[in-house]
């Protein structure tokens, strides 16, 4: 396992291919993906729906094996899910039988951290996402935005070096979504995790990403890579922001058009 703590690990995706069996035929979903995510970098995966960006994330998470190729965390090839790679899902996937605090403590408890220390950790991360006073509630009593904050706190409380986020704000309304983006970017300035963030929102990607990878329509290949040089606190209405947005929109649209043909 890579060293935990503040700061991330490097992720290397080497020659990853993924094919699914569809009606008895092997259908490619990802073709020859080579990608390196630097320690502490926030990388966004962007592409039309069905392009395989979530599949790629699931491979990095260890939920799916690649058909060919491999994924390395620092120098170690992954063989399955692991606590050094935290995952935040679009549908939150909290444990409904546990309270908010117990959800956040889940990882540390599995790791054998003593109970008092677990409570401290949970309190700290619930503070970070602004949910301390909801610690004893159950997930069913929370709104979508609050559930996703719990899910983020749960992932971070386990102190992973990498956080994989699969359209985490996709199910939220537009206002909540922007608030969550701001919170994530604030948290990232403290935690410096390596984050792979899947989204189909160009605006979201430009707001969050250090680097941004556009995938082609299915089967997914890397189409183009952008480095977003916008600094830390980003203004969605700044002219440079809009310039990135329109340039990336043009690139993504080419792929969306292909799906239509």
């Amino acid at each position: 396992m890579s060293p935990a703590g503040v700061g991330g690990a490097r992720v290397r995706i080497e020659g990853v291919h993924k094919a699914f069996a569809l009606d008895g035929r092997s259908t490619p979903a990802l073709v020859d993906i080579n990608l390196e995510v630097q320690a502490g970098e926030l990388l966004c995966l962007l592409g039309p729906s069905g392009c395989g960006k979530s599949t790629l994330l699931n491979i990095v998470a260890g939920f799916l094996p690649p058909t060919r190729g491999r994924v390395l965390v620092d120098a170690t090839p992954i063989t399955g899910p692991g606590p050094e790679r935290g995952v935040v899902f679009q549908e939150y996937v909290l444990f409904p039988w546990l309270t908010v605090a117990q959800n956040v403590e889940f990882g540390p408890r599995l790791a054998g951290v003593e109970a008092a220390r677990c409570r401290e950790i949970a309190a700290r991360y619930l503070d970070m996402v602004g949910l301390r006073e909801h610690a004893t509630k159950f997930p069913v009593q929370l709104s979508g935005g609050m559930k996703q904050r719990v899910a983020i706190a749960r992932a971070l409380a386990n102190n992973p070096s990498i956080v994989l986020m699969d359209e985490p704000f996709g199910a939220l309304d537009a206002q909540t979504r922007e608030v969550m983006q701001e919170e994530l970017s604030r948290i990232q300035r403290v935690e410096h995790k390596t984050i792979v963030f899947v989204t189909h929102s160009i605006r979201e990607a430009v707001y969050l990403a250090d680097r941004l990878v556009v995938l082609t329509s299915a089967p997914g290949r890397i189409k183009e890579m952008f480095t977003i040089k916008l600094g830390e606190a980003r203004d969605r209405f700044a002219p440079e922001f809009t310039r990135y947005e329109s340039e990336i929109t043009r690139v993504v649209k080419e792929e969306v058009a292909k799906v239509r043909e």
Partner: peptide
């Protein structure tokens, strides 16, 4: 998805059974 969430938090096969499958 619950199993995936727990596995990515470090749950072993035994943990999955005791802490996820049974309560779920």
């Amino acid at each position: 998805m619950l199993l995936r969430a727990a596995a990515s938090l470090g749950a072993s096969r035994r943990d999955l059974l005791r802490r996820v499958v049974l309560p779920a």
